[in-house]
Design a protein around this nucleic acid. Structure first.
Length: 495
RNA sequence: GGCCCCAUGGUCAAGUGGACUAAGACACCGGCCUUUCAAGCCGGUAACGCGGGUUCGAAUCCCGCUGGGGUCACCA
């Protein structure tokens, strides 16, 4: 086993799930930490369930997460093609070898007959298992079946004695009694391979050294090992990673909210956070580290440190991590990530100019430490782009309804008007405001709170002077004036 | 139901026979800071599923039970 070769082999039936993403991540980490090769292979043998867009979507999500592959459907490689639907001749050829050596046989039982056989076995209290009745078919009987238009499926003749043991890098030795195995189908009646067959043929053909996949495949492994032996292939190492469960301990599904990588992206999660969180789910660096880059994780990763038990994913911790990244990543990176959100909201133009970008940078810098997702960041930045907001009810009652508040706001506005617009900084605006506060002998909050409401429409947010400096002089004066007018019309009139 | 895997706080998770009066993180609760909200800092509540062994000693090893999960297709 010289060079490490691993693969991620999704079936393109839907979006990339976080469970799949983590399996891909562990494969990627293993390959990258061992100087190996990461292969992407599409398991699209079931033409009925295959969705063309899904293949594109999965690749897009993987790339977005930063998990790049060395060989795959798009890149090609020495062991292609990497799409199972393009490898049918290979499966046919390997199946033929099995038939010729008597290790596989044609089965003419129809799905209905098989279901009936299973049902009868169950009634007798037996484990449903194919009874090999088609094994003894004579040539004449076979011809009759063919003439009747029945297309046969191909079954492997699985040894019925002994045990098959899986040497698993995460779970140790797991043994299965061969008597519990069945003569499973490897070629469907339409000529296509089944999962267990295609998977083995391809893993061997693509020189996969380590099969790292989800635990749900552990019970398939003895069947696959039988195939490896029958076909004379060298066995790869196996590692079955624990599954990711929904908060109610059940298998993850759509009804548990966002479970697809694409959905997390749309909700404003950063790939840095998702990958970091996924790595922490089922693996630990062994110390107290939490926030780590892909590069750091890669350096520390080992399959031996992967836990054995399923993990329930907790979107709150992911959210926390995302918030950590939002405030600690270089500003340019956060701006880049939030840009599409801002454009979609109509805050930033499709092709922003330098001034627009400069403003966005300042906005992001002033709000990013108090949000957890890019969507929240966009919403928290709304009033930096729109001045037609309404005032929060609670704020109106608490700050605008106070007697003398319009005079207060007018004084504040006057003070700000005296600050030159090219020196409208956090320090200068605060100095101007503090002077008003001193002169009037009021508490800071008495002026600061109504001003925040006037400027942003909200009672919570960044430091007031940060808002002022970002907004700029003209906008501040206009908004203060608008607030005074609003109070005059809406609150004074009633009095 | 058969087979297989797993089992430390609500969640993630450290721990590989003595340093365990069981780390850390998220969440939660308090406090500090403060113009608000976050952030940050300080503190708190909270766990070895149960029962038997083995051992001078068990979260750690063995057995049973219970619980959870996976799998039993011409799906992957």
């Amino acid at each position: 086993m010289d060079t490490v070769r691993v693969r991620f082999a999704p079936s393109p039936t839907g979006n990339l799930h976080i469970g799949g993403a983590r399996t891909a991540l562990f494969n990627w980490l293993f390959a990258r930490s061992r100087g190996g090769v990461f292969v992407l292979r599409l398991e699209d043998t079931d033409t009925g369930r295959n969705i063309e867009e899904a293949a594109v979507q999965i690749a897009t999500s993987l790339r977005w997460l930063g998990l790049d592959w060395d060989e795959g459907p798009d890149l090609g490689g020495p062991y292609g093609p990497y799409r199972q639907s393009d490898r049918f001749e290979i499966y046919q050829a390997e199946a033929r070898r099995l038939v010729e050596s008597g290790q596989a046989y044609w089965c003419y039982c129809t799905p209905e007959e098989l279901a009936q056989q299973r049902e009868e076995a169950r009634k007798r209290g037996e484990v449903p298992r194919y009874d090999r009745r088609c094994c003894t078919l004579t040539a004449a009987q076979r011809q009759a079946k063919e003439a009747a238009g029945i297309r046969p499926a191909l079954r492997v003749r699985v040894p019925r004695t002994g045990t098959t043991v899986v040497h698993d890098l995460i779970r140790g030795e797991v043994s299965f009694d061969n008597a519990t195995l069945d003569d499973f189908i490897i070629l469907k009646s339409n000529g296509g391979p089944t999962y267990n067959f295609a998977c083995v043929v391809d893993d061997a053909a693509m020189r996969i050294s380590h099969v790292i996949r989800a635990e749900e495949h552990l019970s398939n492994t003895p069947k696959q090992i039988v195939l490896y032996r029958l076909l004379g292939y060298q066995l790869p190492a196996f590692a079955h990673v624990p599954m990711i469960l929904a908060p109610d301990r059940s298998k993850l599904s759509k009804r548990h909210g966002a479970t697809a990588v694409e959905e997390f992206r749309a909700e404003g999660f950063l790939p840095e956070a998702i990958v970091n969180y996924l790595a922490l789910l089922g693996w630990s660096p062994g110390d107290e580290r939490e926030q780590m880059t892909l590069a750091q994780i890669q350096e520390l990763f080992s399959l031996e440190a992967v836990s054995k038990h399923a993990a329930i994913y907790d979107v709150r911790k992911l959210t926390w991590l995302n918030g950590q990244y939002l405030s600690s990543l270089p500003l340019a990176r956060v701006v880049e990530a939030v840009l599409p959100f801002m454009q979609e909201a109509g805050y930033v133009s499709a092709v922003p100019g330098a001034a627009e970008l400069d403003y966005l940078n300042r906005v992001v810098e002033t709000v990013r430490s108090r949000v957890h997702t890019l969507a929240e960041l966009r919403d928290a930045a709304a009033y930096f782009y729109r001045s037609d907001f309404t005032y929060e009810e609670k704020g109106i009652r608490k700050y605008f309804a106070k007697p003398g508040v319009t005079e207060l706001l007018a004084r504040g506005r006057e003070a700000l008007a005296a600050v030159p617009s090219d020196q409208f900084t956090v320090e200068a605006t605060e100095q101007a405001y503090r002077r008003v506060i001193d002169e009037m002998g009021i508490s800071g909050g008495a002026l600061i709170h109504p001003t925040r409401l006037a400027l942003s429409g909200r009672t919570v947010g960044p430091g007031l002077f940060d808002i002022m400096a970002t907004l700029g002089k003209e906008e501040c004066l206009a908004r203060l004036e608008r607030a005074v007018d609003w109070i005059d019309i809406n609150l004074r009139a009633e009095a």
